[in-house]
Nucleic acid binder design. Structure first.
Length: 599
DNA sequence: CCCCCCCC
C-alpha cells in the first residue's frame, strides 16, 4: 500500500548546524536533510507571547535539540510537520544560551513523512565532548563540520574591527545573552521626546530594528540620545551590539517582540552597506472600506491617495496644555471610501506635498470620532510614494479613474454622506439615558451627540468678566475703577464678558446638565455676552425674556463626557462642543432617509 | 528611566 521511499539524511548535519551562525557564509549553502524525532510544545506563560516548539533533529547518526522559530509554528499547528517528518533545513542558526548551544530553525522545507525513526541516532551532546567532536561525525558528513571552538567565530569577516560575537537573529535575542551582534534595518525612528517626572528631566528616542526573523524596539535616553540620534537613519541597516536586552512592556508597544533593547553608552552601532538580505518594511494593508470593522485603538497599516491636504492647525493638549501642530489628510482608495489621517508635530509641519501622492502608513491608530479616523502615533511610520506594487497600482487607478470618483466618508471632517446637521452626525445620536450608560474610562473623554430640549439653565453666573486680551479669557477682578487680569498682569477699563453656561437638557429618557463656553452661549442666546450683560444691567425685562427664550429651545449638541474628581467626589462632566438649533428641514429629511431604509 | 500620542 504505502510507497517505500528511501530518505537520505545528511549525516553530520547535527554537528554542523550546531556551529551555524547567521552570517556564516557556509551555513546558507549547507541545507541538510534531517528527520524530526519528536516535537514538544513549550507553552508560553504569557498571553501575548506565542508558544514555542522544541524539536529533536536527527541526521540518522546523531540527534540534537533545536527550537523552531515562532514564525514557523503554523507548520506544526497545521500538521505539516509531525513526528518522523523528513525536512530540509534551509536556514538555521545556533547560539549559546546559558552555557548551552541552542539551534534555532528559521526556515525549512518538508520532504515527506516516514512511519518511523531512520537509523539509531544517539545524542550528539551526550556522546561527543566538544574537544573530541571532530572525531564524531566527520567520516560521514556531506559537508565538513567546523572545528568546534568554545569562542564563536568572527561575525563580520569583511569589517576591520571585528568583534568576537556572532550575528544573531533578532528572534534569538534574550536577556540571558550578552555577546551578540544583530544586523538589522531601522524601520522606524521617533522624534526626540522630552519628559519630566519626579526624577527630573529627560529625553529619549526610540527605533524599531528589523531583520528577517523579527523586529525589536530600542530606546536611548539622555546623553545616549546625543550620541546616537543623528547616526541612526530610518531605512538604513546597522550592526548593533552591546545593547541591553530587557523584558518589553508590551502594552506600550505594537512591536512584536517580548524583549526590547536599551541603547547604552557602551552600545556599538555601525552602518552596514551590504543590505541585500535584510527585508524592508512589511505592510498588512487594511482597505479603507474595511475600517468600519476595525476596533477603536487598533494599530493597522493603510495605503491610500492623499485626496485632500488640510491646512496646518494646532490643538492644545488637555493633559499637558501644550500646543501641538496637527494636519489632517483625507485618504482615499479603490474601495470607494475616504478616511481622515491626522499627522502631528514635526511631521504635520513638514508635510508639504501638494499633488496627490500615495501614502503608506504602518501602525496607525484607529479612532472612532464621528465614525472612523486614523491618527499617527510615535511608533507609526509614513512613506510617501513608496516603491511597492500596491502604490503603483493605486496611483494608476487614481490617475485614470479615481480622481473623478466620489467616496463614502468614514469621518466627520471628510464631509458628505452620513454627516449632516452642521457637523453633528444625526445617525449616531444618543439619548440622555444612553449617555449615562456609557462606559467611561477614568481619564479618557468620550464624545457623543444628543438632541435635547433646554429645560433649565443655572441663572446665576451665565457670564463672567473676562480679560479682553487675545486668547486669554481669564476672569478679571474688579478694582472699582478698572479690571485686573492676574495672568496678563494688566488692567483694563472694561472687561469682555464671556458665557459660562450650565444647561439642563432633557429628552424622553431623562436629563443631563451640560456646560457650555462662549461659543455655545452665542448660539443659545443669539447675542454676545456683553450685549446680554447690558440687558441685565439696563433692561431687566428684556434680559429675563432673552434667558427665557432659551428655555424650551431644542438643540442638537455635540458633547464631550469626562470623569472628574473634585474633593474626592467622582462624577461625569458633560461639556458642549457644538450646539445647533434644531433645523427641521435637515432633521426631517434625515428621518425620511431612515424611514426609506426600512421600506 | 518613556509609556503622553493630544483637538473636534
Amino acid at each position: 500500500m504505502s510507497m517505500e521511499v528511501d530518505y537520505k539524511l545528511t549525516f553530520g548535519a547535527c554537528a554542523r548546524i550546531t556551529q551555524a551562525t547567521m552570517d556564516d557564509p557556509d551555513a546558507s549553502d549547507f541545507q541538510p536533510t534531517v528527520q524530526f524525532l519528536s516535537i514538544k510544545m513549550l507553552p508560553s506563560n504569557k498571553a501575548d507571547t506565542p508558544d514555542r516548539y522544541r524539536l529533536i533533529v536527527s541526521d540518522g547518526k546523531y540527534f540534537v535539540q533545536a527550537m523552531l522559530a515562532t514564525q514557523l509554528n503554523e507548520l506544526i499547528q497545521n500538521g505539516a510537520i509531525k513526528k518522523h517528518t523528513v525536512a530540509v533545513l534551509e536556514k538555521y542558526t545556533s547560539n549559546v544560551v546559558q552555557n548551552k548551544r541552542l539551534v534555532i530553525v528559521l526556515a525549512l522545507r518538508v520532504v515527506g513523512d516516514t512511519p518511523e525513526k531512520i537509523g539509531t541516532p544517539e545524542s550528539l551532546e551526550g556522546s561527543v565532548k566538544p574537544s573530541a567532536e571532530s572525531a564524531a561525525g566527520s567520516s560521514a558528513v556531506t559537508a565538513p563540520p567546523k572545528v568546534q571552538a568554545p569562542a564563536p567565530h568572527a561575525a563580520r569577516p569583511n569589517q576591520t574591527n571585528e568583534r568576537a560575537t556572532p550575528i544573531f537573529p533578532i528572534e534569538a535575542l534574550s536577556p540571558f545573552q550578552n555577546k551578540w551582534t544583530i544586523k538589522a534595518r531601522v524601520t522606524q525612528k521617533s522624534d526626540i521626546k522630552h519628559y519630566s517626572n519626579q526624577k527630573g528631566e529627560g529625553k529619549l528616542f526610540n527605533v524599531t530594528f528589523m531583520d528577517d526573523t523579527g523586529e525589536i524596539k530600542a530606546t536611548a535616553f539622555n546623553h545616549v540620545v546625543d550620541e546616537l540620534y543623528d547616526r541612526i537613519e530610518e531605512g538604513k541597516v546597522y550592526y548593533i551590539s552591546r545593547a541591553r536586552v530587557n523584558i518589553a512592556k508590551r502594552k506600550f508597544s505594537n512591536v512584536d517582540n517580548q524583549y526590547e533593547l536599551s541603547l547604552e553608552k557602551s552600545t556599538e552601532i555601525e552602518e552596514c552597506l551590504d543590505t541585500t538580505d535584510l527585508p524592508t518594511v512589511k505592510y498588512n494593508f487594511v482597505q479603507l472600506k474595511d475600517l468600519e470593522a476595525a476596533a477603536k485603538d487598533a494599530m493597522i497599516d493603510v495605503i491610500g491617495i492623499v485626496k485632500e491636504t488640510h491646512d496646518l492647525g494646532e490643538v492644545i493638549s488637555r493633559s499637558t496644555q501644550k500646543t501641538i501642530p496637527k494636519r489632517d489628510l483625507t485618504l482615499v482608495d479603490r474601495s470607494g471610501y475616504s478616511v481622515r489621517l491626522t499627522l502631528w508635530g514635526e511631521q504635520a509641519k513638514k508635510y508639504t506635498a501638494t499633488d496627490h501622492p500615495v501614502i503608506a502608513v504602518k501602525g496607525v491608530k484607529v479612532g472612532d470620532f464621528g465614525g472612523k479616523s486614523l491618527s499617527m502615533v510615535s511608533s507609526s511610520t509614513m512613506s510617501l510614494n513608496p516603491d511597492i506594487t500596491d502604490a503603483h497600482a493605486l496611483k494608476g487607478w487614481f490617475d485614470s479613474a479615481g480622481s473623478e470618483a466620489s467616496f463614502q466618508s468614514h469621518s466627520l471632517s471628510g464631509g458628505g454622506g452620513a454627516f449632516q446637521g452642521g457637523g453633528i452626525n444625526l445617525s449616531e445620536m444618543k439619548t440622555t439615558q444612553e449617555v449615562k450608560d456609557m462606559n467611561l474610562g477614568s481619564d479618557k473623554p468620550e464624545y457623543f451627540s444628543s438632541r435635547v430640549v433646554i429645560t433649565h439653565l443655572r441663572a446665576e453666573n451665565i457670564m463672567y468678566p473676562a480679560c479682553p486680551s487675545e486668547g486669554c479669557n481669564k476672569k478679571v477682578t474688579d478694582l472699582g475703577d478698572a479690571w485686573k487680569c492676574e495672568k496678563c498682569e494688566r488692567t483694563f477699563e472694561n472687561p469682555e464678558y464671556r458665557y459660562l453656561v450650565s444647561f439642563c437638557g432633557a429628552d424622553h429618557t431623562g436629563q443631563l446638565w451640560l456646560q457650555g463656553f462662549n461659543d455655545v452661549g452665542l448660539i443659545a442666546f443669539g447675542m454676545s455676552a456683553n450685549e446680554l450683560k447690558n440687558l441685565e444691567d439696563q433692561d431687566r425685562d428684556a434680559y429675563d425674556s432673552a434667558v427665557k427664550r432659551v428655555i424650551s429651545g431644542v438643540f442638537n449638541v455635540a458633547c464631550r463626557a469626562k470623569q472628574d474628581t473634585y474633593n474626592d467626589m467622582t462624577r461625569v462632566r458633560y461639556g458642549i462642543n457644538r450646539m445647533i438649533p434644531l433645523d427641521f428641514t435637515v432633521d426631517t429629511s434625515h428621518v425620511l432617509d431612515q424611514l426609506s431604509a426600512y421600506a
